[in-house]
Simulated assay, not measured.
Amino acid sequence: MLTLALLLDGALGEPRWLWSRAPHPAVLMGRGIEALDRRLNRGSARRAKGILALALHLALWGGAGWAVAAIPDAGVLEVAAAAILLAQRSLADHVAAVATALRRALPEGRAAVAMIVGRDTAAMDEAQVARAAIESAAENLSDGVVAPAFWFAVGGLPALAAYKALNTADSTIGYLTPRHAAFGWAAARLDDVANWIPARLTAALILLLHRAPWRGVAAEAHRHRSPNAGWPEAAAARALGVAVSGPRSYGGVEENHPFVNPEGARSIGPAEVDRAVALLWRVWWALVALSVPVSALRLL
């Protein structure tokens, strides 16, 4: 099922004709956690309320995954559900769109990268647009492809659905803002735990497939603000021979982040973004190849 789900997602991605007519499960997950946020994130004991909200959220989506998997002879349905919760084709298409737009005009590149990053894009130069696209590609390769495949391999559709619900919750409420620092604490911490192995697995696959040097990856990953995102970003930077991260702006506030792989090229553009897309597909093919023996082990 994992092999078929990876192939189905890689071939079809997220068809516009379908998701323009029905809400994507990730959209429903986001709406659900937002409703719990509005309902429970008030008054005292917000951390406890956040734990309760997350437990309800995971139980709902993990239970939905279990219900689908429990249907007799529902292998095709389970494969389709898993493919929907993977994001390889969608990620590759969005990153490739940045390179295409950047070749046309810098403002178009800024608009395209704004679709996949949360930082300010209005004043970015070409190199900053390219770096942002590469960072997003690396981080989302782990969160949107490797981690879902890993959890499906571990626990089938229930584990995959619960992981996606958790990752959506972290993206919605897992921030150190006055409103969410306490309420989103459980989502942020549990998401860190759930992504610990996949992030390092992603980095290992990138480095092995590109014969890139391992030296310094761990040190740079540990300097990242996230305990996990630094691993695929540092690995991708070495595989592509570019410097990523560096200064950026969020909500008009400049943040002076250090460069990852600082000796790498900094004057980069659409060609390097294209190479990042090729990296995404190379890792995806490795996952497909790895899923075959994993599936055989599960059958045995």
Rank of each mutant, 00 (worst) to 15 (best):
L4S: 13
A5V: 10
L6S: 13
D9W: 04
D9C: 00
A11T: 14
M29N: 03
G32Q: 05
R38T: 11
R39G: 08
R39W: 13
G43F: 13
A45I: 01
R47S: 11
I51A: 11
L52R: 12
A53Q: 12
L54D: 07
L60R: 05
G63Q: 13
G65E: 05
W66Q: 10
A69H: 12
A70S: 14
P72Y: 04
P72N: 02
D73G: 09
G75V: 07
A80E: 06
A83F: 09
L86I: 07
S90F: 06
S90I: 02
V95W: 00
V98M: 15
V98C: 12
R104V: 14
A105H: 15
E108G: 12
I116W: 08
I116T: 05
G118Q: 10
R119L: 14
R119N: 12
D120N: 06
D120G: 01
A122W: 14
A122F: 15
A127S: 15
A127Q: 02
Q128H: 06
A130C: 03
I134C: 01
S136I: 03
S142G: 01
D143H: 05
D143N: 09
A147T: 02
A147W: 00
V154F: 03
G155Q: 07
L157I: 10
A161P: 10
A162H: 09
N167C: 12
S171F: 07
I173L: 02
I173K: 08
Y175W: 06
L176Y: 10
A181P: 13
G184E: 09
A186L: 02
A187W: 12
A188W: 11
R189V: 06
R189F: 09
A194E: 04
W196T: 03
P198Y: 07
P198G: 04
A199H: 08
L205P: 07
I206K: 11
L207G: 12
P213K: 00
V217L: 07
A219D: 12
R223H: 06
R225W: 00
A229R: 02
W231F: 14
P232Y: 14
A236Y: 10
A239S: 01
A239P: 10
V242P: 11
S245N: 15
R248N: 13
R248D: 13
S249K: 06
S249D: 08
S249E: 15
E254V: 12
E254D: 15
H257M: 15
F259D: 08
N261T: 08
P262G: 00
R266H: 13
R266D: 07
R266Q: 11
V273K: 09
V273N: 01
D274M: 01
R275Y: 03
A276H: 03
W281E: 05
R282Y: 03
W284I: 04
V288C: 02
P293V: 00
L297C: 13
L299P: 01
